[in-house]
Each structure stands twice: as C-alpha cells, then as structure tokens.
Simulated scan of single mutants.
Amino acid sequence: VALAVLEETAEYLGAGLSDLINLFQPERILIGGWAGLQLGTRFLPAVRRHAATYALRHPADKVNIDLGKLGPDAVTVGAAILPLADFFAGGGRRPEPAAEDRLPAWRAALRQRAPH
C-alpha cells in the first residue's frame, strides 16, 4: 500500500512539474529536501516520465529534472547566496549612502528647546 501511495505521489509531482514546465520553460528542475534525498533515486524516473507525459512536448524536451546535490543544507546555501545575488545585480558595487538632511542629535535637541 505504501509503495502504491509513493508511486501515485510521483505521478502528482510529475503533473505539478509539468505545469511549471509549461509556464516557465525552465532548463533545469532540481528536486531536493529530505524527501527528495530519501526517495528521489527510486522515484525520479517515474517523476520524469509523468512530467513529460503531462507537459507540452516542446518545453518538456528542453528540461532536465535532477536531484539536488547540496543535500539538507540547500536552503541555507540558497539563503546565503541572496545577498551576493543582490550585490552582483547592482553591478558589484556598494550602493552610495543616501544624503541625509538630518541634524546632529545635539543640534536637534537645541532646536526643540528653543522658543519658536
């Protein structure tokens, strides 16, 4: 019974991936996480087969569905890359500090005490 449930899950995963393939036409889809790492090698061929069955032929021919190789640290590594992606998207330079018109704290305190 458990095997039948996992095979049905592989079909549903393939059908869901086919929607992503049709919409975004990716070159590669990586399956990871603890479930992907534990069950992926056994069910990956079925997921690929179902994704190709449900997706449009043209985008399905161009996509590779593989298992992620980063292991359980994939989320952590992905989060660590976000600041780097932002840095490189900005041309590899730090943003210029915004010009501030604020007064020093001592001067602002004097202005608040002075009669208007």
Rank of each mutant, 00 (worst) to 15 (best):
Val1Phe: 07
Ala2Val: 09
Leu6Arg: 14
Glu7Asp: 13
Glu8Leu: 04
Glu8Tyr: 03
Thr9Glu: 12
Thr9Leu: 14
Glu11Leu: 10
Tyr12Val: 07
Leu13Phe: 02
Gly14Phe: 03
Ser18Phe: 01
Asp19Trp: 02
Leu20Trp: 06
Phe24Ala: 13
Pro26Leu: 06
Pro26Thr: 07
Glu27Tyr: 06
Glu27Val: 01
Ile29Gln: 00
Ile31Asp: 05
Gly32Ala: 09
Ala35Cys: 06
Ala35Lys: 03
Leu37Glu: 15
Leu37Thr: 05
Gly40Ser: 05
Gly40Val: 06
Gly40His: 05
Arg42Ser: 11
Arg42Asn: 05
Leu44Tyr: 08
Val47Thr: 03
Arg48Glu: 14
Arg48Cys: 10
Arg49Val: 01
His50Ser: 14
His50Val: 04
Ala52Tyr: 06
Tyr54Asn: 13
Tyr54Leu: 08
Ala55Asp: 02
Ala60Ser: 15
Val63Tyr: 05
Ile65Lys: 00
Ile65Met: 01
Asp66Leu: 15
Asp66Asn: 11
Asp66Glu: 15
Gly68Arg: 02
Gly68Ile: 02
Leu70Met: 13
Pro72Asn: 12
Val75Ile: 12
Thr76Asn: 05
Thr76Trp: 06
Val77Gly: 02
Gly78Gln: 06
Ala79Gln: 12
Ala79Val: 08
Ala79Arg: 04
Ala79Asp: 06
Ala80Met: 14
Phe88Asn: 03
Phe88Val: 07
Ala89Trp: 07
Gly91His: 01
Gly91Phe: 04
Gly92Arg: 06
Arg94Tyr: 15
Arg94Ala: 15
Glu100Trp: 05
Glu100Ser: 15
Arg102Gly: 12
Pro104Val: 11
Trp106Glu: 13
Arg107Phe: 14
Ala108Gly: 05
Ala108Cys: 01
Leu110Met: 13
Gln112Ser: 10
Gln112Arg: 15
Arg113Thr: 08
Ala114Asn: 04
His116Asn: 08
